[in-house]
């Protein structure tokens, strides 16, 4: 499973980088979203994988009965996912505004804000 995850992280990362380098704004934003996913997955994987045991305490025991998935990266990634959404939305609107202001649909032409 670790190798599989590593491959997925690598694949997503490569795709994200490639898309970020495109001159089309939408591709850059999609690249950003994919890169975010790759990073989240990397953090999640780096803390070791545990199949099927969520970090939830048994009601009767007062502690988990078996080795659980690490809750720390989960808490980190959870907020990261939500914030990434905010960043994505902001970038999307920003690019849209920039495209409208500079009347360019190409990032290379959006080099100045003086219109």
């Amino acid at each position: 499973m670790e190798i599989l995850m590593a491959l997925v992280v690598g694949g997503l990362y490569g795709t994200g980088v490639y898309l970020l380098l495109r001159p089309t704004p939408v591709k850059v934003i999609i690249g950003l979203a994919i890169l975010t996913n790759a990073v989240n997955l990397l953090i999640f994987t780096a803390a070791r994988l545990t199949r099927g045991h969520p970090p939830i305490v048994e009601e009767t025991l007062g502690r988990p009965s078996y080795p659980i998935a690490d809750p720390v990266p989960q808490a980190l990634v959870l907020t990261a996912i939500v914030i990434a959404f905010g960043v994505l939305a902001f970038t999307l609107v920003l690019f849209r505004r920039a495209a409208e202001t500079t009347e360019a649909d190409n990032l290379d032409e959006m080099r100045t804000t003086d219109t």
Binding site: P54, L78, V82
Partner: peptide, 12 residues
Amino acid sequence: HNLPGGGFVGGL
């Protein structure tokens, strides 16, 4: 607080 869920998911 006790089972999967919470403010983030709920809000979304």
